[in-house]
Design a protein around this nucleic acid. Structure first.
Length: 777
RNA sequence: GCCGGAGUGGCGGAAUGGCAGACGCGCACGACUCAAAAUCGUGUCUCGCAAGGGGUGAGGGUUCGAGUCCCUCCUCCGGCACCA
């Protein structure tokens, strides 16, 4: 009797699968399609830890089940390859990002291959490949043609030491730059935007159609932040200037006793020119705009502000003159950047009014619509969502395919020049402008194609642009004529199951939905939502309960686990350790548990027999089929594995295991542990069609012939009686009465309160003078 | 502050309103062994010799029956955070 040897088995089968093309995507249009997608990873130099593959294992189990059910399954993997870590590494060492990225991809791919994830590697893609970003740029041009891309000035984080723009992620909570330690400032720069706000309403409504975690839907709705209210103009005394405010409470207009403008408000320069305290105002504005958003939030919520002295606004309802303030508790980026302050009805306004000794006016509420009309305002809808800023003053991204004529007017690079290649002759070290500005080749290329005095755009695109359409490219990743052919898009899209981290509840998932809707409106797609079913995996923490990190020296490498216990035991453990979406600490002893389970499954082949199924075993078998099937669908992998263990434990108790039951068990185990099940199927000389087929439970056998009746007396569970399932009600109650005699003796049953739940419960309620459950007769 | 989610053995966790603690880990004892490991077996919420009682963060409620539903509160985790 040979011992279970995962190393030998797994190596053998991985080789067979690779050579036979076992997981090639079948174009077979006679089969229904199913598209299972993982959020593609950023290939970092550190490699994988055991937490990374958790989602991949789950989606793989799902994909394997679908194949066994007769679907044509698309299950691809790729690389979100552009991004900051590779660039920062280049800055530090001078190694080109192309090189480090390709090395990281090779490492990731090798680690993933050890786990028998059934990807079709012919569908592999990477966003940094010119063959891919050509189409990212092409899509940019389509969005540009349609007016969904525009350029405008925006405030960005500026590092005065490194002389560069920083991403928000590179600014620490105290407002200093992560790299240089300099105090980050805000600068007004020309930036490219995607007009995602055009789709704000549809992005909210579409959420009702998809099977996503409720919390993710709520997060997206909150992020979009739709809010109904009114825009009302306040005139300025002795001036023809007006200030427009947004409010959700026009009914409180009479109570507006002062106004507040955000420090970024465009009218401020004008107003302060007439103010008595011009210098104070300018100083306040300067201090406030210098602070990063993060810093503005990190500060205690103590209100600050300055009055614009000598300038008054007129409340359009009460006609009273009211003071105007600048204060940073009003945000420039929301509504109109100005508010009417109603301290009687708003906590923040009240706090401010208290600090600056402003009057608080109690008022009667008006009808919102009527008062808005009366003062010449209008009802409007405002969103917290802003247009998507996609310019990055960075090297390692897809170049924005735009050139400027000698007058500085932007022009789209014509399609025939795509891919608009990322130059390689650049200085990575930030010098105050985007690294692409240091490329002689890019400038020469631009002048050669467009003429003397033309200049290239030197910003690159946010990497989220690249990942907003990769799920479309997977339908047809090698197409040179289009981002994907119509036929392939129709065949595979939308994604039926999408698995990935909960950290992407807002950005990536919303950008991708925006792309889908915009491309639908351009006629390229025929569906509204890209991801029909979405699930998030929970983090795997280290054994010490902290996040796995080199810093804590607590990282568990999946390669080591595969070496010790095999990929099958690792896969099983990651699914068994707890609810899929929950964050759980790693425990290597748990892998020992699933390894032992597989050992027992292995040893069982020695006691197979062509016996018929006993009724008890048959029922358990059918129940296991039913449970494992529905649990996989519901992403309750932990209880699915548990059900498999229960069946296997039952096999262990038997002298001989009926072969047919064992084969069914192998089918159910197969998506979880593909190597051992293939090996055992081969040893049993099973043909593909005999076992690589998902079993269906025989519903008629799911219920037992005898029912266990729980008997309650006075609300307390007492005893179980077994009866034939078909026994009529009166007879069951009679049996129950008999079984519970001990607790019923000498007491009177309230007959009409005897509860009978078929097949489950008989509950006797007693007359009881002491507790008076019911009124005495 | 607001919006989600969750509190169950020594640990991870299980439980369509119907036997709380499935399954796994750990631990204890036993078998095998010169011995250990591995493996197998038995036990493992708590009080009690037992019959029986108590027990799912706290308190109340609904119900024949509550871990599960409702109310109040506490704690933890995640997200948003002066959004007018």
């Amino acid at each position: 009797m040979s011992k279970y040897d995962p190393r030998a088995i797994e190596k053998k089968w991985q080789k067979i699968w690779e050579e036979s093309g076992a997981y090639k995507t079948k174009a077979d249009s006679s089969k229904p399609k199913y598209y299972v997608l993982d959020m593609f990873p950023y290939p970092s130099g550190a490699g994988l830890h055991v937490g990374h593959p958790k989602g991949y294992i789950a989606s793989d189990i799902y994909a394997r089940k679908r194949r066994m059910e007769g679907y044509a399954v698309l299950h691809p993997m790729g690389w979100d390859a552009f991004g900051l870590p590779a660039e920062n590494y280049a800055i530090k060492t001078g190694t080109p990002p192309q090189k480090t990225t390709d090395e990281s991809i090779a490492t990731f791919k090798k680690q993933i291959s050890n786990l028998a994830l059934s990807y079709d590697w012919e569908y592999e893609l990477a966003t940094h490949a010119p063959g891919y970003y050509k189409w990212t740029q092409w899509l940019f041009l389509k969005f540009f043609e349609r007016g969904l891309v525009y350029k405008k000035k925006a405030l960005v984080n500026w590092d005065p030491v490194d002389q560069t723009v920083l991403a928000n992620e590179q600014v620490l909570a105290d407002g200093t730059a992560e790299r240089s330690g300099a105090k980050v400032e805000k600068r007004d720069l020309e930036q490219w935007f995607f007009k995602i706000t055009d789709y704000a309403d549809e992005l909210i409504e579409g959420l009702d159609k998809v099977d996503w975690p409720e919390s993710t839907k709520i997060n997206q709705r909150n992020w979009i932040g739709k809010s109904e209210g009114a825009e009302i103009e306040f005139t300025i005394a002795n001036s023809d200037k007006k200030i427009k405010i947004f409010t959700t409470r026009p009914d409180t207009l009479f109570g507006a006793t002062y106004m507040v403008l955000a420090p970024e408000h465009p009218l401020l320069a004008d107003l302060s020119a007439h103010a008595e305290n011009k210098a104070d105002i300018e100083k306040y504005i300067q201090d406030a705009t210098k602070k990063s958003d993060i810093e503005r939030n990190a500060e205690e919520k103590e209100k600050t502000g300055v009055e614009i002295k000598g300038v008054k606004a007129i409340n359009p309802a009460s006609k009273e003159e009211i003071p105007i303030y600048v204060a940073d508790y009003v945000l420039g980026g929301y509504g109109t950047g100005a508010i009417m302050a109603v301290p009687a009805h708003d906590e923040r306004d009240f706090e401010f009014a208290k600090k600056f000794n402003l009057s608080v006016k109690e008022i009667e509420l008006e009808d919102p619509k009527k008062i808005t009309e009366q003062v010449g305002g209008k009802m409007v809808t405002t969103y917290r969502l802003h247009d998507w800023l996609i310019s990055r003053q960075r090297y390692w991204g897809a170049p924005i395919p735009v050139v400027y004529d000698p007058e500085g007017k932007p022009h789209a690079v014509p399609e025939e020049h795509l891919p608009w290649l990322l130059p390689t002759d650049v200085e990575y070290l930030p010098k105050g402008t985007s690294p692409l500005g240091t490329s002689k080749e890019l400038l020469a290329r631009t002048e050669k194609l467009f003429g003397k005095g033309w200049k290239p755009e030197i910003d690159t695109m946010d990497t989220f642009v690249c990942s907003s359409w990769y799920y479309l490219r997977f339908a047809d990743p090698h197409n040179q004529e289009a981002f994907a052919s119509k036929a392939n898009l129709e065949r595979w899209l939308p994604v039926d199951l999408y698995v990935g981290g909960a950290e992407h509840t807002v950005l990536h998932l919303m950008y991708a939905r925006f792309f889908t809707k915009a491309l639908r409106d351009m006629g390229y797609l025929a569906f509204d939502e890209p991801f029909l079913k979405l699930r998030h995996q929970g983090l795997i923490l280290a054994e010490d309960g902290r996040k796995m990190s080199k810093r804590w020296n607590n990282v568990i490498n999946p390669d080591d686990m595969v070496e010790r216990f095999g990929a099958d035991a690792l896969r099983l453990y990651e699914m068994f350790m707890g609810p899929f979406e929950q964050q759980i600490a790693w425990n290597t002893n748990g892998v020992v548990g699933t390894y032992r389970f597989l050992e027992r499954v292995w040893d069982m082949r020695e006691k197979l027999a062509e016996n018929p199924l006993m009724e008890k075993l048959d029922i358990l078998l059918q129940q296991t089929i039913d449970k494992v099937s529905s649990d996989i669908e519901a992403f309750k992998f932990n209880t699915a594995v548990s059900a498999l263990m229960i069946l296997s434990n039952h096999f262990s108790e038997l002298e001989q295991v009926p072969k047919s039951a064992y084969v069914t068990f192998l089918k159910l185990l197969h998506p979880f542990a593909p190597h051992i099940t293939h090996e055992l199927a081969e040893q049993l000389t099973l043909k593909r069609e005999e076992w690589e087929v998902w079993p269906v439970a025989d519903a008629s056998k799911l219920t037992t012939a005898t029912a266990k009746i729980n008997i309650y007396v006075d609300g307390i569970f007492r005893v179980i009686a077994e009866v034939d399932s078909r026994t009529p009600k009166e007879e069951v109650i009679a049996v129950a009465k008999n079984a519970a005699q001990r607790w019923l003796a000498g007491r009177e049953i309230v007959e009409h309160k005897t509860v009978y739940v078929p097949g489950k419960v008989v509950s006797f309620v007693l007359y009881s003078p002491s507790t008076s459950i019911l009124p005495q007769p």
